[in-house]
Amino acid sequence: MKAETARPVAGTREGRKRMGVRLGAWPGMVAWRLGGIAVLLVIWAALATRLSAAQLPRPELVWDALTANFSSSPALEFAGVQGGYFSNVLYTLTTATVAAAVGGLSGFAVGVASARSQLLRDLASPLLVLFAAVPPLVAGPFMLIWFGPGQLAQSTIVAFFCFVVIGVSAQNAASSLSPAFEEFAATLGASRRDRLRHIVIPASIPPLIVSVRLCLCTAWSLQAAAELLGSDRGVGRVVGMAQQLGDTASTLAVILLLGVGGLVIETLITGALTHATRWQSGQRR
């Protein structure tokens, strides 16, 4: 059989290289992702026929709860929560994303700096390991005691988690960079600052993409969990209320809205990171 053009075999380096440079792949990617959601809906609908609405409501009941409470909700208003599901999900996502960015960028700075200085490494490494061993939800009650049940406590929990995850990853990424790159740059006249900006930082970003995705997804869960512990708004507050009323459809509606919003933000951020690291071969989305 004769092929029109050479095609790389999937899974090989050539195949992965091709995946990394293909620019027209977005429509296909979106179609596959929608396909995944469709499969989930079919499984959900099938399971819902065998369970009660309190255990697992049918997709259309959840859709009804979502549309009825999207921009405003009498039940939420009664409990003193402003807005509908959309504004509460937006609050959770933006608060968590900003906190993740602050924690992640601080972690990146500390991780890279500690990879380049023995003194900083000796100082930071035990702290990063110690912090990594503390479950964020165990730290949560302390944050509430220290900062009260507000945005600061929620953001601190999220930022703390992202600081540790990105800090450890950045330290590993910057430490594993071949010294030859920096030595070559030094003999071209690059200062320490030039080398940090043009070599260490760009080389450290690709290994961090997985950690960034992990941080974002966990940030939203942590934010919602922190809101459950104590908050006057957000997904956690809405879910807590719905559970008290035994309204499983509303609980699922707001969780799904959070998932969809999270998917959009995650796609945008990792898309931007993937574009910034397109120099690599064989990168996966």
Binding site: A180, F184, T187, W279
Partner: peptide, 14 residues
């Protein structure tokens, strides 16, 4: 005193 190394030192991100 620029130096060319045995290792590949072309910056892959540029």
């Amino acid at each position: 005193r620029a130096m060319v190394f045995q290792e590949d030192t072309v910056f892959p991100w540029m």
